[in-house]
Amino acid sequence: MLANLGFILGTTLLYSAPLMFTSLGGVISENSGVVNIGLEGMMAIGAFTGATVGFYSGNPWLAFLAAGIASGILALLHAIASVTFAADQVVSGIAINFLGPGLALFLSRLFFDGATMTESIDFNAKMPRPLNGVFAQNSFLDLVFNQYATVYLAFLLVLIMWFLLYKTKLGLRIRAVGEHPKAADTLGINVYKIRYLCVILSGIFAGFGGAAMSLAVVSNFRPTLISGHGFIALAAMIFGKWKPQGAMLACLLFGASQGLVIFIGRTDLQVSSQILAMLPYVLTLVILTGFVGRANGPAADGIPYEKDEA
């Protein structure tokens, strides 16, 4: 019983981590007032880059960083469009969602001899498990806490983002830009600079999220690896009311459903895994209607800021 619970909790954490990274990307971008619906595409390019660099270099940390950089570059496109050219941010994000997976598969075919699936990285090149061997094998604590480093990093990033947004001057500026860019501008904050920073960071985080999939949850990149995860992360961000800690809880809910489905699949319980898989989404809708109430994001979210021409 305890082992089963441990297994469910462990898989929950494992599957939540990629969502948490990506969701935090959404949090930072949207708090600065830029809607980022392109998380899905950014996650895909991150997952691909992580798997590829991991395969060729054998170094998971290098791969993880490379994934962040690749997605950051893709996010730069989104920033140029939505900050400099006052684009409709949703449209630009949709473009990113075609470009990200498209580029990932395009490059995969070039690097892996026409295959859309990258070759599996070596077992030693996967993300390390910092607490491996600390607990007795398959004990409750082992199942729960013997996680890949990405899981711990995801929680750490939640803490950092919470601190950054609510306890630092920069965070205050970011939120000011997201709520009322004109007022922020009047006070001497460079709206464009802040937004560029936040959008690029959101790409880097989404890239980490993708790499947390391809370097930890599985060990390669394939076309269906990122199929809707970015959108779930986006939903988790809205569910979490645009806050890092809220997004984290929402991601844990979605991760838990994954954990349960995998657990049920291993037993001979007569519960439909399909219905079970559906539950968190139904639950989210119910919670949104009843308990959370109106979800209001940053006031200037999605509105391009154009300085008045003097």
Binding site: G102, L105, F106, T116
Partner: peptide, 12 residues
Amino acid sequence: EMIDIVIGTIVF
């Protein structure tokens, strides 16, 4: 997948 790049660029 060049097609996705084309479509993505158009939308962009």
